[in-house]
Each structure stands twice: as structure tokens, then as C-alpha cells.
Write a protein that binds this DNA or RNA. Structure first.
Lengths: 157, 157
DNA sequence: AATGAAAGGCGCGACAC
DNA sequence: GTGTCGCGCCTTTCATT
């Protein structure tokens, strides 16, 4: 089954504000409440909408500094990968982790309060799992941060 | 004003699931509904809780591939910075942008469906603003992605 | 002064049409 | 897909310590 213009519009709206009442949502997509609500339910059941969460201000929580950590390993085994995955999952300051192509094996985004705080997380990480090489780059400013994914025609339900 | 253990617990809970009714929330922090609700309101008004949004599945929206783009500029002016900021803000595929220290000036996270799709976004970007150097790294796998920030004692309201 | 308990407004979630 | 109804949650007020 595909996803039409109305579903895409609904996703755009809910990705920017999930507190919006169904009545308002329905009005914005030129629909009545019930079919609008049914569409939203369908999108949730299909797993297109995964969750509904509160977003916090990093600075107000004392984690206004982002550090990107490029990690290289010399143990390309399944065991090491699992150990690494568990380690980063267990550290809440590590908010994003990607397995990369090219030079660096893994790229981490870490949120901390300052450089000293980063050193704490760094030590946590290297004690939890052996790393061949670690390169840290500090972000001076967050220009854009969006949890809203682009919704195009190619999407599938 | 500070933030106590209960507020921190509330933030943890709401960052993982904002659909949770206040009654359940109150129970989990050993409080009654009203004081619990008032605390949540305070956190919203203080801007600690910035928004409440729906999170979507990238693959189901056809943007399962993440590309990190390292950008260098040779025009270190305010005008260029503003132009660049406006450009990345206007492209929905660019979901995160950081001004970096070190070699690369800016780091972008871009979500696309595949390599051809990335080329489209790449062209959009270089046509919108002059870039001295662009280096793209593809992510093979998303190991971790969390919008939940760590909540520690150092937090301030 | 901040919490706990109770009452009203209102949006969510199922029915027929 | 549209309109209607009932249930349950959010929100407010009052009494309490």
C-alpha cells in the first residue's frame, strides 16, 4: 500500500508538533476528524510513526557541547562489534552511532557539558571496549538539528 | 532554580514516551497527578522541554541512508555564514548541521534513499552556496540514534 | 508553599449512515 | 469519508499539611 498526499502532510505536521489535537490536524488536511484519526492510527500501526517523545534543550540540561568521535578498530569480528554496540548503548551521552564506510569504522555523536566532561565519557568508552584509534572533533555551534525526516513520494507503507 | 530528582526522572520518562498519561507518570515518580502535572508545565514553560514530536522510521520514509558531509569554506565572512545557514535550513534532507573546530568548518548529516538521491541533494547544496571543499562519508548502518539527552545533576532551570 | 483529592471541560476512540 | 455518542484523560479548583 502506498501513501498519499494527505498522509505525507499528516507526517509533516506530526513531526513538528505531536500535541496538535486531531480536530486541528483534520482541518489542516481538509478532512473530518474520524478519517484523519484513522490515518494516523494506520501510520502508527504500520510503524511509520515509531514514537512520540519530548525534545529537551541541550544547554538547559547541561549538555550543550557536541563532540564527534571517529573510531577505528583492528578487530573486525562479530564479537567485538557486539561488545562495541552494547558499550555505546549503555552510555547515554552517546546519542548517535553510525558504522561508516571509508577510513573511520564508526562515527559517534556525544553530548557533554564541557571538555572535562568529555574526557570522562572518553575514558568510559575506552575502558568498556578496546579501540585502535579515536579522533575527537568538537562542535562550536549547532546550526541545525531536526528530528523531522523529509517525506517524499517514494515512501512506502 | 534547580531541578530535583523527580524532575530529572520526569524528563527521562517523557523523552522516551510523551504519550504517557499524567496518572501513570505520577505513579512512576511517586506523586499525585496535580503536582506531577505542574512540574511538567514548569519544565515546558522554562523551555527545558522544547517540543513534543512524532519520530518516524527513516527506512519506511525512503531515507534509510545517512551521509556525513564535511564542508570547508574559504570565505570566512558573516555574509557567507548566513547564506550557508539559510541554505541548509531550506533543505529537509539536511537534518543536522554543526560548525566545527579543526580541519572541517561544518559537518552535515544528510538523509537520503540512495547514492543517486544523495547526488541530487549534493547538487542542491553546491548550487545554493559556494563551497571550497566537500567530503562525503556514507554510513552503512545506524547503530544508535537517540533524541533522549542525558539528565544529570548539573542541569539548570 | 507545595502537595493530595475531587469535579468539570474536552479530545480521543467506536458506532451507524 | 461524514456526523454522533460515550468514555477517559487533561486541567482546574478547593481543602490540607
Amino acid at each position: 500500500m502506498g501513501m498519499d498526499l494527505i498522509d505525507r502532510k499528516l507526517l509533516e505536521l506530526l513531526q513538528s508538533d505531536a500535541t496538535m489535537p486531531v480536530a486541528e490536524l483534520a482541518q489542516k488536511v481538509n478532512l473530518s476528524q474520524t478519517p484523519c484519526w484513522k490515518r494516523v492510527q494506520r501510520l502508527k500501526e504500520a510503524g511509520v510513526i515509531r514514537a512520540q517523545v519530548a525534545l529537551c534543550d541541550p544547554r538547559k540540561l547541561g549538555v550543550g557541547t557536541t563532540v564527534f568521535v571517529a573510531v577505528r578498530t583492528n578487530q573486525h569480528t562479530e564479537e567485538w562489534a557486539q561488545m562495541f554496540t552494547r558499550a555505546v548503548q549503555a552510555i547515554p551521552e552517546v546519542v548517535e552511532v553510525y558504522r561508516m564506510s571509508g577510513e573511520t569504522d564508526y562515527l559517534l555523536r556525544v553530548v557533554v557539558s564541557d571538555i572535562d566532561d568529555y574526557d570522562r565519557v572518553y575514558k568510559l568508552l575506552i575502558h568498556a571496549v578496546p579501540l585502535y584509534d579515536v579522533s575527537s572533533s568538537f562542535a562550536m555551534e549547532q546550526i541545525k538539528y531536526s528530528t523531522a525526516l523529509p517525506v517524499r513520494e517514494t515512501a512506502i507503507t
